[in-house]
Amino acid sequence: MTTDGARRALSFDELVTSSERRLLRLGLMLTGGVHSAEDLVQTVFARAHRKWDRISAVESPEAYLRTMVVNEFLSWRRLLKSREVPLAEPIDRPSEEDIGSRQAQRDAAWRLLAGLPRQQRAVLVLRYYEDLPDDEIAEVLGVAPGTVRSNAARGLATLRTHLPAEEEH
């Protein structure tokens, strides 16, 4: 099937196959847990399947799904039961790097990010992980660009207050 003769519309299965990993990574950044991210993305895929006729007609179905993931995360009322911290992918070869120190820094970053209010966390993930500009973040969240900037500023300020002071050598 083509839309306007310009591009072939993806089937739902094709969209799931092409976007699942990216959406899972986004879900992981938002929830901080592998299982919670899987639940989040699965919920979105189930809802998207029911609305597929409408979603397949939009210009960017993957961007639409990304928005659904963020909105679903923001609307979750239940507490995330798991406070697991995702670990780095296994390393294939030995490294000179201090893996323990790197992992401790990563764990601390996850804890700091998890302590932010959901909207601030979503703004920071969309800005720094998805690399979206403020106007696109505002569109995804359904807020004004000024709200995005204030949430980003508050979130970063909170993170800065909880970061350990750098040691002087």
Results as ranks from 00 to 15, higher is better:
P117E: 12
E62V: 13
E130M: 01
E20G: 13
L30Q: 02
T158H: 05
A104I: 11
R66I: 07
G27I: 03
T3L: 13
A108T: 07
Q103T: 15
N71A: 15
V41K: 01
R160M: 11
A46L: 06
A88D: 12
L132I: 01
E84D: 15
L10G: 07
S36W: 00
V85M: 05
E168L: 14
D134V: 02
G33M: 01
V140T: 11
I91Y: 08
A6D: 06
I99M: 14
F12N: 02
R121P: 12
G115F: 07
G33N: 03
V148L: 02
A6G: 05
N151T: 06
G5Q: 10
F12E: 04
N71T: 14
R50P: 04
R50S: 13
L40D: 00
V69R: 00
R66A: 06
H49G: 11
E38C: 12
A138K: 01
I99V: 15
M68H: 08
R50E: 15
G100P: 09
V85Q: 04
G27T: 03
P90W: 04
S36K: 02
E14W: 07
E84R: 08
R154C: 14
I55T: 10
T31E: 01
R154D: 15
R111C: 04
L23K: 08
T31P: 03
V125Y: 00
R154Y: 15
A48T: 11
S95A: 09
Y64D: 10
S56I: 07
L40V: 05
A157Y: 09
D4P: 02
T161H: 07
P145Q: 04
G27M: 01
A157E: 09
R7I: 12
S18D: 13
F12I: 03
D92P: 04
L30G: 00
H35S: 12
V148Y: 00
M68S: 13
S36V: 02
T161C: 06
I55K: 03
A104T: 11
E166L: 11
S101F: 11
A114C: 04
L156Y: 07
L28K: 01
A57S: 14
T2F: 13
Q119E: 10
I55L: 12
A108C: 04
L126R: 01
D135G: 01
H169P: 09
W76Y: 12
L15I: 06
A114Q: 02
L74N: 08
R83K: 10
E20Q: 13
G27N: 00
V34H: 10
V140S: 04
G5Y: 09
T43P: 01
E14S: 06
D131H: 10
E89R: 09
E72G: 05
S95K: 03
S101N: 13
L124G: 03
D39M: 10
S19Q: 13
L126M: 14
R106N: 14
W110E: 09
E62R: 15
A9S: 08
A63H: 06
T2K: 14
W52C: 09
L163F: 06
H162S: 14
L126A: 03
L28Y: 01
L126F: 08
A138D: 00
L124E: 02
E139F: 09
V70F: 14
R21F: 11
L112Y: 00
A114I: 01
R77N: 08
D135K: 03
E84F: 05
